[in-house]
């Protein structure tokens, strides 16, 4: 097939992104474990991933740039490279949030906790990690039929977010409401988890664009209209 080398480079690019995604996913698994067990040792395993993910993300972005410069991709190739760049960004950011949460676990140590808030937080944590995995699965399989399910799952996470935040800012009067420090950590964690879920949803949405080209046309039209406006000036 013509452009065999280019195709191989594109395939390798996708493999690299999926590999990075699976590693982030595995880190999220460690994070869930750390949150469930309050085990500082487990949380510490995630320390340092942020830097390495950022480096790999930058490397993938650079490869995308080189392919664009050398191969002048259009149509599905262009959509793929654009999507890979966007997806690596979502992955790296999810990895960063994962490390932040593990740092929170390590720093909150054996602080006094609010069991209701912790239960909501853990449920949200599992939901967010599921969403992230689903987004990655959809990207890997290009299975856009499943992308529709993401919205509903995200609504559920958003609901848990409101619930957890409400618990975080309205502590009960009794002694089981947890220490103020822990509440702050919990609120931050809830916020980070919501972001992780959003990254999963975005990866799924990017895949829809990759497969169908939806949004591209409107973007191109916007570009053209801007040009026309520019000429009018």
């Amino acid at each position: 097939m013509p452009r065999g080398t280019f195709q191989q480079e594109l395939d390798r690019l996708v493999e690299e992104v999926v590999e990075l995604g699976r590693e982030v996913e595995s880190c999220l698994g460690t994070m869930v474990e750390a949150l469930e067990t309050h085990d500082v040792g487990i949380a510490r395993r995630v320390f340092g991933v942020d830097d390495s993910y950022k480096e790999r993300g930058a490397q993938i972005a650079e490869e995308c740039l080189i392919l664009q410069a050398r191969q002048a991709p259009v149509a599905r190739d262009l959509r793929l490279i654009y999507t890979v760049q966007a997806v690596q960004n979502h992955l790296v950011r999810a990895g960063t949030l994962c490390e932040h949460i593990c740092q929170a676990v390590a720093e909150s140590g054996d602080a006094e906790r609010d069991p209701d808030l912790e239960a909501a937080l853990l449920e949200m944590c599992r939901g967010a990690c599921n969403l992230f995995r689903q987004g990655l699965d959809i990207f890997e399989a290009r299975d856009i039929d499943r992308a529709r399910d993401l919205e509903a799952a995200d609504d559920k996470v958003d609901l848990l977010y409101s619930e957890a935040m409400s618990l975080a800012v309205n502590p009960g009067k009794d002694s089981s409401s947890g220490s103020p420090e822990w509440r702050v950590w919990a609120a931050l964690t809830v916020h980070y988890l919501e972001r992780i879920a959003d990254h999963g949803v975005s990866i799924g949405e990017r895949t829809v664009f990759l497969v169908t080209g939806e949004r591209m046309e409107s973007a191109m039209r916007l570009y053209r209209d801007q040009q026309l406006d520019h000429y009018d000036d």
Binding site: A75, G213, E217, Y223
Partner: peptide
């Protein structure tokens, strides 16, 4: 043109513009 070079409707068109023709 923006449609043809971003997401053409037919496979043959996409194969051609992406250089996969043949």
């Amino acid at each position: 043109t923006s449609k043809i070079f971003s997401s053409p409707n037919r496979k043959e068109t996409e194969d051609y513009v992406t250089g996969r023709f043949g």
